[in-house]
Each structure stands twice: as structure tokens, then as C-alpha cells.
Amino acid sequence: MKILVCIKQVPQKDAPLKLNETGTWIREDVSYEINEPDAYALEEALRQKEKHGGEVVAITSGPARSQQVLREALAKGADRAIHLEDNAFVGFDAYNTARAFAAAIKDEQFDLIFTGLQSDDYGYAQTGVILAELLGHPHATIIMQIEKSDSGIRVKRELEAGYFQFVDMPLPAVLTIQSGISKLRYATLIGIKQAKNKPLRKVALAEVQSALSDNLQKIERLYVPQKTKKTEIIDGSPNEIAKKLVERLRNEVRVL
């Protein structure tokens, strides 16, 4: 199976975020990491390849810094990578990102395309499904299991409140992968070494420009949300905090 995995680089979970001067995005000087559901998408692609053979290709869009997530994918076992490299990709809406990916892979045939089910930064939860529509492929979302079948694949969709559903699908198909589908592997030292010699194709914005449109939605303002609930801050030394909490638990919450 030939599998494409779409990976995004996002600010690290614990990174303190600061707004830029125009208040439309964050300042870029934070640490970044691989978007968590995308890490699971990559893991699942590598496992499918180990079972059925084939090739795993990782793709991302973003400035030079985002090459790091491709290096990580290659070190973990992806065979090659595609980097749509430009600062402009950071501000793309999901529609344009999907269009850019579709244009970058137009000469290739993948059996499966994986994305994480949503990103930790925008959280659109749309890029994978839009890509499926642009390519004319069937799709399924929030996937927790993938088995090869005679006619294609059988996937397990996660539904709300602990429900699931199996779905049979033909190939090629696009799947958005849920965190926790399997256990993530670490890159080995050998893997990291080998990654240096694996092919990484760079695609400039100009090469996909003709496939793009204007963004169809625009962030007018980014801001720290206003608190609506009255919260009492409990502070002091750890011992004082413990005493204050127990006082509240006894007299206000009445559980002690």
C-alpha cells in the first residue's frame, strides 16, 4: 500500500502563546512539535506498511521550521517526504491547504491518505475531508482501527459517548485518524541517521499557486477569551493552599 500522511507542525502544548502586533495570529517565536493526532496518523501508516508492504510518504506545508516534523517522520520510518515550503502556508484556510496538497501530489497515486482528525492550533477538523472531496475519494473520520479487506478496507469509526461503527470502504480513500489508535513509537538512533539520506522534495508556493484560491475565511481578530465564570483563586504556599481547599471542601462544597 502506498500511503500519504499529512502532518502539521503546531506550537508545543505547554508553549506560552503571545499575540502578534496586529492581533491576528500568534508570535512565531515559540517551540513547535508535531500535531498529536498526526503523530498517530503516521504511526498507523507505518504499521500498515509493516503488515502489507508499500511506501509511506509524509507531507507538510509551512515555513522552513516545519521541516522538523518531516525529519521526525523519516526517522520513524517514512520513506520520503514532501515539504510545501513557504511562510504563507501558515495563514491558509483548510480549503487552500487541501488544494495545495492536492496540487503537490497530482502526479502520484496513493491507496490511502491519512491526516490527524484535527490540529491543535486551528482545530478546523476539515483539511482531510476537503482533500478527499477534491481528489474524488471516499473518506471516513475519527478512525480508531484499519484492516485490509478483500474489497478495500474496513475501518472503525469512533462516535460520541463510547459508541463505534465499522465501515467498509473501497480504495483509494482518505481517513482522519484519532489519537490513541495505537501506541506511538520513538525514533531510533539508526532511524535518525538514515533519515538524513532519505529523499525530501521541496515544493515552492509558485508551483502550486495556480491551484489555489483566495482564502474563503479570515481571522479578523485573535484574543485571550474573556472569563465568564467567577473563579476564586486559592493561593499561598502549598500548605496554605491545602488548608484553604479543605476549608472550602468542608464548608462550601460540603463533601468532608
Partner: peptide, 16 residues
């Protein structure tokens, strides 16, 4: 809508 898992919020408009 919430951004960055609720750490920030954004006002978003349609342009098309």
C-alpha cells in the same frame, strides 16, 4: 471560535 484548544479565541469572517 476557540483556537489553540481554547487558550485563545478568534473572530472569523467569510470572505467569499
Amino acid at each position: 471560535r476557540q483556537m489553540f484548544q481554547g487558550k485563545l479565541a478568534a473572530d472569523v469572517s467569510f470572505t467569499g
